[in-house]
């Protein structure tokens, strides 16, 4: 009886453990079978490199959206990564305990605030600021990048911090004992040793930025066009889905799922890379 119950419990746990596998499989399958037909119809290259998105006329090219996602994400990484790494160094190396005791929960709060709130705040402050200082509509790549840079900070800061804290203490003590200054120690010993963790942090941050929808939907302007400067409005892969999913049907809906496939593939590549980088470290 008890042996029997032991085995049953083991298989129940195993079955539960399969939930994440089956969820991932279901997501993959359902996104793909709903998006593939339209890609097959217009052709992979036409879909990915097509310049024109006019679902009512049967034109499904998402290249402007890919450019939009890439530029906005790149901008977010350029702004957010250095600030995030600085904050992580601040927390691990400089912050007095009283400040870090405020700082950590603050970062946690930053991570918890709904992304729509960021978008709204960007619409109220960042967009007018860009319009007044640099001209243009204000709804732009720059506005999206700034908002996303703020939003990826928690990811970048926490993972970088963890990888710095994981370093053996004697690395730092050894360097200081050799007569390096505190900053030289950070720059030439700590940061290089924590490199793989920082790289993972950056990749995961980029993954978050490229997948974000609600924060950027309000500040990007959402125009389907190849931008000429960072002050131009763009549409990203995510906002394309977010804006049109509400009323799309037929091939139009399929095309949005196809957009989802492209996004999904990009994210899976980023995730796999991040997992690979962290695993190599161990």
């Amino acid at each position: 009886m008890s042996k029997f119950r032991e085995n049953i419990s083991k298989y129940i746990f195993l079955a539960l453990a399969f939930s994440s596998i089956s969820a991932l499989a279901l997501i993959t399958i359902f996104i793909i079978i709903n998006g593939i037909p339209i890609i097959a119809e217009v052709g992979v290259l036409n879909f990915i490199f097509g310049m024109s998105w006019a679902p009512s006329h049967g034109e499904f090219g998402i290249f402007p959206m890919i450019i939009g996602s890439v530029t906005v994400t790149l901008g977010a990484a350029l702004l957010g990564v250095p600030i995030g790494i600085c904050c992580a160094v601040f927390l691990t190396e400089f912050a007095p305990q009283t400040i870090s005791r405020i700082f950590r929960p603050a970062i946690q709060l930053l991570a918890g605030i709904p992304s729509v709130v960021y978008g709204f705040w960007g619409l109220l402050f960042i967009v007018p600021m860009i319009r007044n200082w640099f001209g243009g509509p204000g709804l732009s790549i720059l506005a999206g990048s700034i908002i996303l840079a703020i939003m990826v900070l928690p990811t970048v800061i926490s993972i970088t911090e963890v990888s710095i804290l994981a370093l053996p203490r004697n690395y730092k003590e050894g360097a200081l004992a050799l007569g390096l200054t505190h900053w030289q120690t950070i720059y030439s010993v700590i940061l290089p040793s924590a490199k793989s963790g920082i790289v993972a942090a950056v990749i995961l941050g980029i993954g978050r930025a490229i997948g974000e929808t609600m924060a950027v939907i309000m500040v990007l302007g959402n125009a389907v066009a190849i931008p000429e400067s960072i002050l131009d409005p763009v549409r990203t892969l995510t906002t394309n889905i977010g804006i049109e999913m509400g009323y799309a049907a037929g091939t139009h809906r399929q095309a949005l799922f196809a957009t989802g496939i492209v996004l999904f593939i990009i994210i899976m590549i980023l995730n796999a890379t991040a997992q690979y980088v962290t695993r190599k470290k161990k």
Partner: peptide, 17 residues
């Protein structure tokens, strides 16, 4: 791998699914 991948999937893709 599945769990970590699920963690990275954007919410809009969850919405589609």
């Amino acid at each position: 791998f599945s769990a970590e991948s699920l963690a990275g999937i954007p919410s809009i893709v969850y919405g589609l699914f």
